[in-house]
């Protein structure tokens, strides 16, 4: 099975990203609150990992630390075997659509990270990524004129335009309506299948995680640990009513201690 092969490769080859005894604590009013406790994770090259957990458990802290915006209290994040010391254009953090720059047009936003490239190559990338995320015809539009879903696609396009080998997505579709959210998931999978970046995707939506991920890391309440890693070995496109899908989804719900009935 394809799933198992990827897994073997991840075990033998060097992981793209690994966290080693990663602990993060915040100091406030003279006392330190532990947020992440001894996180050990290995993510393979080209893998799509979802992180789920109860709200406020430290998922975003984990993602910010992996991206280099926060420093670990102890332990380390390694990417390609090197310790992460700060943010890097090779790995882009995608905020909800809040990260697009309102003073730049769609083109201007996508061009933002391309300042070191020659003009022709810039043009080529702008055209390619506008097309990839389906924003043709909006090249000169400002973000205020776009819908939430379009802004989100713009932010993804801006991130992809610098050819990052990793993407960090922090509940990227959280503020979108449920229809747009479904479309965006499909789009993201399509883009990922075309570009094969390593993606770490934080969400509190179990369905979203099971629909998208190769593996789902389930986090516990604070101070967060990795409570379990669930492998989703269902081929894309996934049938959300298939027994294997429902079984995996319910398994994760159970790990999080959620009841089956409301």
């Amino acid at each position: 099975m394809a799933g198992i092969e990827t897994d073997k490769r991840a075990e033998t080859a060097q992981p793209k990203l690994s966290t080693e005894h990663l602990t993060v604590a915040f100091g406030r009013n003279g006392k330190t609150t532990p947020v992440l406790n001894d996180i050990n994770l290995a993510v393979g090259k080209g893998e799509f990992l979802c992180v789920v957990g109860p709200s406020g458990c430290g998922k975003s802290t984990l993602l910010s630390t992996m991206a280099g915006f926060l420093s670990p209290t102890s332990g380390a994040v390694k990417i390609d075997g090197e310790v992460v010391n700060g943010p890097d254009p090779r790995r882009i953090f995608v905020f909800q659509e809040r990260g697009v720059f309102p003073w730049l047009t769609v083109e201007g936003n996508i061009e933002f990270g391309l300042f070191h490239l020659p003009g022709a190559e810039r043009r080529r990338r702008i055209i390619h990524y506008i097309q990839l995320v389906g924003l043709e015809g909006f090249e000169k539009a400002y973000p205020a004129e776009l819908s939430g879903g379009m802004k989100q696609r713009l932010e993804v396009a801006r991130a992809l335009a610098v050819n990052p080998d990793m993407l960090f997505l922090d509940e990227p579709f959280g503020s979108l309506d449920s229809i747009t959210r479904l479309t965006m998931r499909k789009e993201l999978l399509r883009i990922w299948e075309a570009e094969r970046n390593t993606i770490i995707f934080v969400t509190h939506d179990i369905d979203e995680a099971v629909q998208l991920a190769d593996r789902v890391a389930v986090m516990s309440d604070r101070p967060a640990r990795i409570q379990g890693i669930v492998k989703i070995d269902i081929e894309h496109p996934r049938d959300v009513s298939s027994p294997s899908y429902l079984e995996l989804r319910d398994g994760i719900s159970q790990q999080l201690g959620l009841a089956h009935k409301i």
Binding site: F69, P87, D88, I92, F93, G99, F101, F112, H116
Partner: peptide
């Protein structure tokens, strides 16, 4: 200036 903008700017090097 919202910190997401600064972060995004730093992220792009």
């Amino acid at each position: 200036v919202p910190s997401v903008y600064r972060r995004a700017g730093r992220n792009f090097g």
